[in-house]
Design a protein around this nucleic acid. Structure first.
Lengths: 357, 357
DNA sequence: GTGAAAGCGCTAACAA
DNA sequence: TTGTTAGCGCTTTCAC
């Protein structure tokens, strides 16, 4: 492995100074066409590649950003990442992926690394912990844009959000409009604004439909795969089980679908199911799933846009941090139907065995 | 935004030389415990963070690797990335994600960037083009490990593969064992070793079952979502349509599932379906999908392991490049069944209208 | 054990 | 228009 070729080698080869080479390569300052030519020729012959660490050291800028998410295996984050990657590339930024798995310790570890690497900015769906580290990153001069979740301890960071309250409301209202009166919700953790918002929307829709809030119907689960099977069982075992379930993200929806099938519960015959997040498989299941779709790529694009803006105008007023809010959309498919006149157990109790749908 | 604190500041604060600080922080060379103490105190007080570009420049090493894939939105790559991320972190490496979307031009662009960034290594599911750039990367001293696909032009690169021939064979043999005699295949592009291998396995299984090869039954499609709908239609429209279809990756399987449902074809009643790749939704569809599962996380882990080994022993003999080959596994679910005695169109022709399954 | 100093590869004053 | 040079922040000889 031969010694790597530097700007000095190029200068020698082209018979000019290294400053001239730098100028020629960066289109900065004055360079005659002749020199430009000679330099590019030398570059080609020598296979010269500028050394990014050296530029980074000199320029105090890396053209690299960090993307902090929970789990790339979750289609939501995968699509977000896809949007971020392509947008970032367009602006000349490249991304270091940090999957913290909803674990504050891992988030902290990644944050430390991203700071040492002096990434220009960080796009983050954060746990909400590590407030101190986030502050430190910002103080270091790293621009932070929060995506999907706001965090209270960073009121001054830009943020790109989905209107989760509306999403939760629309999902629930769709169900009440179908005639459901007992709607179960598998809610994500209230430590996240997404969990909070969607649950809040659920409450609001019930209220608007003059329906009582039954605490038994709200099941707290984590935003992870297979984390809520017992939540489904719990709902199913209720004295008066719900006639519909609202799964507040795609992993939870997967779980719900799985558990309902395993228990032999007919959807939407016995129970209707609505899910937050549209994902490719939602139209492949039988029945296909009615969902609240998020404009995920847009979320990513806006986030990058926001970040790039901060990067290019380093001293825009921070003060409040800008907020961009996107709208979710109800996509009706097959998994929701009007409820049976009465919950099936009620019917059984009143009229004896009843042929299951 | 105040000037960032450097090793010099720490030295001043601790009342020692910068060399001592460096030694203390890196556990290298001799440092008295007292100095060590003072340094760490100063670091804490000043919130000092080593500047990675500076270390990188000095050390000619970045602790960063590139991961080149097609599309993070494909669950296969998402899981691969997840495996790579966690393995890499364990070894102290962080990853820049490059999604080239099966496009050689994008791959080239990313490759150039990764070279300029002087990543220590690259893990790649490559297009197979850009041979020259890959060579250049290796010459630059960047260790390259190929994952999932081998590329002919880089015989000296380490490679971590799945036995695609076996996978293709097992899928097809399972179908022939069920009694299928006309099996359609939606094959990926032969420019990839995965496409090649799976098709080769298909041929081999047919041969072993003494079944003829009918070119009409092999449909070439790209490894992309919804790229093969017309391929399904083509198979369906055949004078003697297949009684089973082998979809050679998860995106193609998604497409097949989608198209068959849209056309009202019963699975596995009229047509059996088997897919390469196990994905979370494969057990949620109705019927659930019989698949050939790849040990994807393992693939990622091995790849990182391989790379780290090269990184830690820079002058291991290159010569041939090591190959690790993993085994696929057949997971039987509900989407395959014995065929109808004769293709339904034959029956119709012979016996008039026939009640569809 | 500790510190002074050279230098990693690059950019941008500044001088010519 | 071009070249010389001083760092960017760090590690590591090499004297002491």
């Amino acid at each position: 492995m031969k010694k790597s070729v530097t700007i000095r080698d190029v200068a020698l080869r082209a018979g000019v100074s290294i400053a001239a080479v730098s100028r020629a390569l960066n289109q900065s300052g004055y360079v005659s066409n002749e020199i430009k030519q000679r330099v590019h020729e030398a570059v080609r012959e020598l296979h010269y590649r500028p050394h990014d660490s050296a530029r980074g050291l000199k320029l105090q800028r890396t053209n690299t950003i960090g993307l902090v998410i929970a789990d790339i295996t979750n289609p939501f984050y995968a699509e977000l990442a896809a949007g971020v990657l392509s947008s970032a590339k367009k602006w000349g930024y490249y991304v270091i992926l940090a999957a913290m798995d909803e674990d504050p310790a891992q988030e902290a570890e990644y944050l430390n690394v991203l700071m040492e690497k002096r990434v220009d900015g960080i796009l983050a769906v954060a746990t909400g912990q590590n407030a101190h580290l986030w502050r430190e990153a910002i103080d270091l001069g790293i621009k932070v844009v929060l995506v999907d979740r706001k965090i209270a301890s960073l009121p001054d960071a830009d943020v790109v959000l989905l209107d989760n309250v509306k999403g939760g409301y629309d999902a629930t209202a769709y169900l009440t409009a179908l005639g459901h009166r007992r709607i179960g919700i598998m809610s994500g953790p209230l430590s996240t604004t997404t969990g909070q918002g969607r649950l809040q929307g659920y409450y609001k829709a019930l209220e608007d439909a003059s329906l009582p809030i039954d605490p038994e119907l709200v099941q707290m689960v984590s935003f992870k795969r297979k984390s809520g099977i017992q939540a489904v069982d719990h709902l199913l075992a209720l004295r008066k089980p719900p006639t519909a379930i609202f799964a507040t993200n795609n992993l939870i929806g997967e779980t719900a679908m799985f558990a309902l099938r395993a228990r032999g519960v007919s959807v939407p015959g016995t129970i209707s199911l609505i899910m937050f997040d549209d994902v490719p498989w939602a139209s492949l299941t039988m029945p296909s799933l009615t969902v609240i779709a998020q404009p995920i790529s847009l979320l990513g694009n806006h986030a990058v846009e926001q970040l790039v803006q901060r990067l290019q105008h380093p001293d825009l007023p921070i003060s409040e941090g800008r907020t961009i809010m996107l709208e979710p959309e109800l996509i009706v498919r097959e998994s929701c139907a009007p409820p049976l006149p009465l919950p099936i157990t009620e019917i059984e109790r009143q009229a004896g065995p009843y042929p299951s749908s």
